[in-house]
Design a protein around this nucleic acid. Structure first.
Length: 587
RNA sequence: GCGCCCGUAGCUCAGUUGGAUAGAGUGUCGCCCUCCGAAGGCGAAGGUCGUACGUUCGAAUCGUAUCGGGCGCGCCA
């Protein structure tokens, strides 16, 4: 419908150009918008206002000329000029009823399109939390957001590749390995002081317990030997970083590389398996789990550095190797190889993005916690230095959610290991509410997540509100059966013109908006638009339900109304499916 | 100190990329079940869009300044 109006307008502009009323070189950006207010008709354009200045004419006069040049269309019942020069279009309500047929025919496909995505290969990397412990509620928002963005992109025709970057190398993982081993030694009966900077969570003990069961005392070393000559920990007046690093070194030394790897992998595999299961249960699926360690093993890291070297972006200073990212818009240059010869995390990330480029994605989307925003310029710089286009990469930032239980803020502390995990959240509020709440707000905005509200089974809860609309339609159809009334679907389609109530016209208009909403949400990576739409649609359904009886005597009207509410049910189900929230038949 | 994000109804948030009288939900108050599910609906009240200049036909939206809040500024990941 939008397109149709745009064509009408462009034709009119062409006529005015040939008349000499408009300069021929003018390229109008034809913007048709949906009117915000029903009084302004269905669609509006500000064309006359934007063209007024170059045409050296006043907007309202120009608008009249445009309207005069406008070809007649049976669908358009009225065109009028309003306000400073808007042209408002009124659409014949009957003309929109086709959407009910469309929805019925397309079913769960309704709302999907191919035009804007057009087979683009898009990679979406999200969550990618270090496998050093279970996912917490902060990761949950990134998980829900990433999964829905991926669904939305797929719905507009993109070929989506969902990926989790596994940070299975690096210092944090070594610290985890050391933590597991020390807990294992305790399991063996050794007595020791656990490092303040180690991973103190209960899950580490569990891993150590299993390790002890599997390996017996084989990996045991006397605590005295382990701690001999290790610099003091912070509580003893030392440096906790030096302390833990020395313990990592000692573990490698005493265990040897094979056994150390055994301990390391025990931690990694156990936690990764937990994360995978957690996400799986949350409805988050990946095409690929990409290993950081694999980048080093395959030589990709070295290769990416060589590329930068040849391109002239690397230099030596203070014994380290630096990437001259300032030349590509970063605030300072970054170290890629440390003085001690070790690669930095950033070096792996350069290699990872090189791989992303090499794999030929048309677009690369990274979803990060908002606290990483300072990291964007250097990654974009790396992409450019590697010969890629920096605009291929979109970094979408997700702010952390602050949890509340009613008025009361839920305290979280990573240090003590007593943070609220995603699993705990799911157990408390359920998958549907968790997913809905996480994407209800604009992603780069702080949000308050009220656990009490998410679990409440009342009208305050927006999840139930939308789901209830779906269940309510299902209930009507159950009633139809119970009353023994027939339903004739084709008959309803031929009598859609019986739908003349304002509620019905409004609902039909809202239904025609759905594909636009999906498209807009996808292109803007903004699932909250979809949520708002679903609430609007549910609200209109509830309003309709309260003021009109569907199961009326008049079979033609009844069939038409049933087709309408069935279409509403379908669209709600489709929207909830994109969110991966269930659409229950009864509640 | 520098950089990025954010200040909209009592509270939580939208605002279609510069458009028409700034909108929802919730809370408060008043109504609506002999009727397909009241987990619902209808109505009322509630605003100097942080503040001040500026850009133009027109600003919550763009620019500058300022106040307030968050985050980031490692040879950590």
């Amino acid at each position: 419908m939008k397109k149709r109006l745009e064509e009408l307008l462009l034709d009119a502009v062409a006529i005015l150009k040939s008349n000499g009323d408009l300069p021929t070189e003018l390229e109008p950006e034809c913007l048709i918008e949906r009117a915000r207010d029903a009084q302004h008709g269905d669609f509006a354009t500000n064309l006359a206002m934007t063209l007024a200045k170059p045409a050296r004419s006043n907007p309202r006069a120009l608008a009249e000329k445009i309207i005069a040049a406008l070809a007649a269309d049976p669908v358009v019942t009225k065109v009028e000029i309003a306000g400073p020069g808007f042209i408002n279009f009124f659409i014949d309500p009957q003309a929109q009823f086709g959407v009910i047929r469309d929805i019925h025919e397309a079913g769960h496909e309704f709302g999907k399109s191919r035009s804007s995505g057009a087979g683009q290969r898009v990679q979406v990397e999200f969550v990618s939390a270090n496998p050093t412990g279970p996912l917490h509620v902060g990761h949950g928002r990134g998980a829900a957001y990433g999964a829905v963005v991926a669904n939305l992109l797929a719905a507009i025709g993109c070929e989506v590749h969902r990926e989790y970057y596994v940070n299975d190398a690096g210092r944090q993982m070594d610290i985890l390995a050391a933590s597991v081993w020390l807990r294992y030694l305790e399991e063996c009966g050794e007595s020791l002081v656990f490092p303040s900077n180690g991973y103190r969570g209960e899950y580490v003990r569990a891993i150590a317990f299993d390790l002890h069961k599997a390996q017996g005392e084989r990996l045991r070393r006397p605590a005295a030997e382990v701690f001999a000559g290790i610099p003091d920990d912070e509580p003893q007046g030392g440096d906790k970083e030096l302390h833990i690093d020395a313990l990592v070194g000692r573990a490698k030394e005493l265990l040897g590389s094979t056994d150390y790897r055994e301990v390391f992998d025990a931690g990694l595999n156990d936690i990764l398996a937990d994360i995978r299961q957690d996400l799986e249960e949350f409805g988050v699926h990946y095409e690929e789990w990409f290993s950081e360690r694999g980048l080093t093993d395959s030589g990709a890291v070295q290769r990416s550095l060589d590329t930068l070297q040849t391109a002239g972006y690397l230099y030596q200073q203070d014994g380290a190797t630096w990437f001259a990212s300032t030349r590509l818009g970063d605030e300072k240059d970054r170290v890629v190889v440390r003085e001690n010869g070790q690669m930095t995390y950033f070096a792996s990330d350069i290699a990872y993005h090189m791989q992303k480029l090499e794999r030929g994605f048309d677009r690369i989307i990274n979803i990060w916690g908002a606290d990483h925003h300072g990291y964007i310029p250097r990654v974009k710089a790396a992409i450019e230095a590697l010969g890629g286009e920096r605009d291929k990469l979109d970094v979408l930032l997700v702010q952390f959610a602050v949890l509340y239980r009613g008025e009361e803020k839920v305290q979280m502390s990573t240090r003590s290991g007593e943070f609220v995990t995603l699993r705990q959240l799911r157990n408390e509020v359920g998958k549907d509410a968790a997913r809905f709440f996480y994407v209800m707000r604009k992603s780069d905005q702080h949000m308050d997540f009220d656990l009490k509200l998410a679990t409440s089974r009342t009208n305050e809860n927006p999840v139930y509100y939308v789901q209830y609309a779906h269940a309510r339609v299902c209930s009507v159809f159950r009633q139809l059966d119970e009353k023994g009334l027939p339903r004739n679907l084709p008959n309803g389609m031929t009598h859609l013109s019986r739908l003349t109530e304002p509620h019905e016209n409004a609902l039909v208009t809202t239904l025609t908006r759905y594909p636009e909403v999906v498209q807009q949400s996808a292109l803007q990576h903004a699932p909250h638009h979809l949520i708002h739409y679903l609430r609007d649609l549910a609200a209109e359904l509830h309003g309709y339900y309260n003021s009109h009886q569907f199961l009326v005597e008049d079979a033609d009207l009844r069939d038409a109304r049933l087709n309408l509410i069935a279409a509403v049910r379908q669209v709600i189900a489709n929207g909830l499916a994109l969110l991966d929230v269930s659409a229950p038949e009864s509640m």
